[in-house]
């Protein structure tokens, strides 16, 4: 009857699909999973507290918000937009493609701290990619604007995920090494990181092509099919 432990997965899928408050869905799913796994109520609540505290590091990104708010108040977005409008060859896709390359390369030499959603995307990359389209096509409809912003966030994720795995001291490389060590297979980190390179190249091509297709889509949408 251990299939019952999957109840939490079901609650999450149904809850997210029905757009119930995500915090409530996840909490209920956690409690239900604990009950199905025969944990005591005390153990379930303690586990919530322990994991929540242990993962506080994820919340530290919010520390940047007062600074980013001040920057926006002082006109950072407006300045980034003015600058990008002056570069005539700049398009949304090209701006994002350049950021993808930089993000992947810097992450692959261990500099994943050089990017990030709150640090780079919200104050700089998102307004620049939006401005590149606005400079060409004028004011954008909300739907298009949201699509461009979502692409800006996605580029940061894709770049860091498939860049940092090439870096030897990265958590994922060390996790792979540690787990195989525990099973009597001994490899060097270099040996593991090497095999992350083909995928890193592949994702740059795949996502890069998609960014250029985004440019084409914008061009068609706003210039009535002319190129």
């Amino acid at each position: 009857m251990h299939l019952l432990t999957l109840i939490g997965v079901l609650i999450v899928i149904v809850g997210f699909a029905l757009r119930v408050n995500a915090l409530l869905v996840v909490t209920v799913a956690g409690i239900a999973t604990g009950v199905a796994g025969h944990l005591s109520p005390y153990a379930i609540v303690s586990e919530f507290g322990r994991a929540f505290t242990q993962n506080r590091y994820v919340g530290l990104v919010w520390l940047t918000l007062p600074v980013i708010g001040l920057l926006e108040r002082a006109g950072l977005k407006e300045r980034a937009q003015e600058l990008i409008a002056r570069v005539h060859s700049a398009t949304t896709g090209r701006v994002l493609l350049l950021y993808l390359a930089i993000r992947q390369l810097t992450a692959s030499i261990g500099l994943s701290a050089l990017g990030g959603q709150a640090q780079m995307v919200r104050p700089l990359i998102a307004p620049m990619s939006e401005a590149a389209a606005e400079a060409r096509y004028g004011k954008l409809p909300d739907k298009t604007r949201h699509l461009i912003l979502a692409h800006a966030a996605a580029v940061d994720n894709v770049g860091v995920f498939f860049g940092e795995d090439i870096f030897l001291a990265m958590g994922s490389v060390l996790l792979i090494k540690g787990f195989l060590d525990g099973n009597g297979i001994h490899l060097t980190p270099l040996h593991i990181a090497l095999w992350a390179i083909p995928t890193a190249v592949a994702v740059f091509i795949i996502h890069g092509v998609r960014l250029l297709l985004l440019d084409r889509r914008l061009r068609r949408q706003f210039k009535g099919g002319q190129s």
Partner: peptide, 26 residues
């Protein structure tokens, strides 16, 4: 950002409970 700000930490708790209950094995 709203209350979603705390979601990653709650999901970590959910992951821990999944592990305790043996979801991975299933």
């Amino acid at each position: 950002v709203g209350t979603v700000a705390v979601l990653p930490q709650l999901l970590a708790a959910l992951g821990a409970l999944f592990a305790d209950a043996g979801v991975g094995k299933v």
